[in-house]
Simulated assay, not measured.
Amino acid sequence: MPTSPHPTLPHPSRIPRPAHTPDALRAALARLAPARLDEMQATKDDAFAEAVEWRSLTPVQSWILTWAREIEIARRPALSARYAQAKAHLEDPDPLMAKEALEELSAVLNEATRDART
């Protein structure tokens, strides 16, 4: 009987959509894509610094939505596959293929953003 390479990790689609808080988003990312935690922290630091500089919560809200979208993609295998496929063809030498990849990438990001907001 075949075994999963990560038997203790749940299937990504079984990870519930996290709350829109830094701690909940970080916990979800730690389960889905732990290699991206440093990237998340760096962008969080930047967002909080901008919030102080701008005297606005807009950078923090943007950071939360960005990572909620990234987690939405990571937790849904079909959406993640579409995202990876589109990114792989963005620089295709065939302009039509590159355009289609850009349109698909945009559609994936829009879907993930919409669903992350619900």
Results as ranks from 00 to 15, higher is better:
residue 2 P to A: 00
residue 38 D to G: 08
residue 27 A to C: 05
residue 82 R to G: 00
residue 108 V to D: 01
residue 1 M to Q: 12
residue 4 S to Y: 12
residue 106 S to D: 09
residue 36 R to P: 00
residue 107 A to D: 12
residue 13 S to Q: 14
residue 75 R to G: 11
residue 74 A to H: 07
residue 52 V to G: 15
residue 118 T to P: 05
residue 115 D to A: 05
residue 61 Q to R: 11
residue 14 R to A: 14
residue 40 M to W: 04
residue 86 A to S: 07
residue 56 S to I: 02
residue 95 P to V: 02
residue 39 E to A: 10
residue 91 E to W: 00
residue 95 P to S: 02
residue 89 H to N: 13
residue 87 K to M: 10
residue 38 D to Q: 11
residue 64 I to L: 13
residue 15 I to A: 01
residue 95 P to D: 04
residue 43 T to M: 07
residue 22 P to S: 04
residue 8 T to I: 11
residue 18 P to Y: 06
residue 105 L to A: 03
residue 51 A to T: 04
residue 10 P to Q: 03
residue 13 S to W: 10
residue 5 P to M: 12
residue 31 R to D: 06
residue 46 D to H: 11
residue 43 T to Q: 13
residue 65 L to N: 07
residue 76 R to G: 02
residue 103 E to M: 10
residue 114 R to G: 03
residue 79 L to N: 03
residue 8 T to K: 06
residue 56 S to F: 07
residue 10 P to L: 05
residue 54 W to S: 14
residue 49 A to C: 09
residue 70 E to M: 09
residue 12 P to M: 09
residue 5 P to I: 15
residue 80 S to Q: 14
residue 40 M to L: 14
residue 65 L to C: 05
residue 59 P to C: 10
residue 16 P to D: 15
residue 106 S to N: 09
residue 113 T to A: 04
residue 20 H to T: 00
residue 77 P to A: 15
residue 93 P to Y: 11
residue 68 A to K: 01
residue 42 A to G: 09
residue 64 I to Y: 04
residue 5 P to W: 06
residue 96 L to Y: 13
residue 43 T to V: 01
residue 78 A to K: 13
residue 46 D to L: 12
residue 62 S to F: 14
residue 32 L to Y: 05
residue 17 R to C: 11
residue 39 E to Y: 12
residue 29 L to Y: 02
residue 62 S to W: 14
residue 88 A to G: 08
residue 45 D to S: 11
residue 73 I to D: 02
residue 66 T to N: 08
residue 56 S to W: 05
residue 66 T to Q: 06
residue 100 E to K: 12
residue 23 D to W: 09
residue 65 L to E: 08
residue 15 I to L: 13
residue 82 R to C: 02
residue 55 R to D: 13
residue 32 L to K: 07
residue 80 S to L: 13
residue 88 A to N: 12
residue 25 L to H: 07
residue 48 F to T: 03
residue 86 A to V: 05
residue 102 L to E: 07
residue 28 A to H: 06
residue 118 T to V: 06
residue 113 T to Y: 04
residue 113 T to H: 05
residue 2 P to M: 03
residue 8 T to D: 09
residue 85 Q to C: 08
residue 70 E to R: 10
residue 75 R to Y: 14
residue 117 R to T: 06
residue 16 P to R: 12
residue 107 A to I: 05
residue 102 L to H: 03
residue 29 L to K: 01
residue 12 P to G: 00
residue 116 A to C: 03
residue 34 P to D: 15
residue 49 A to P: 12
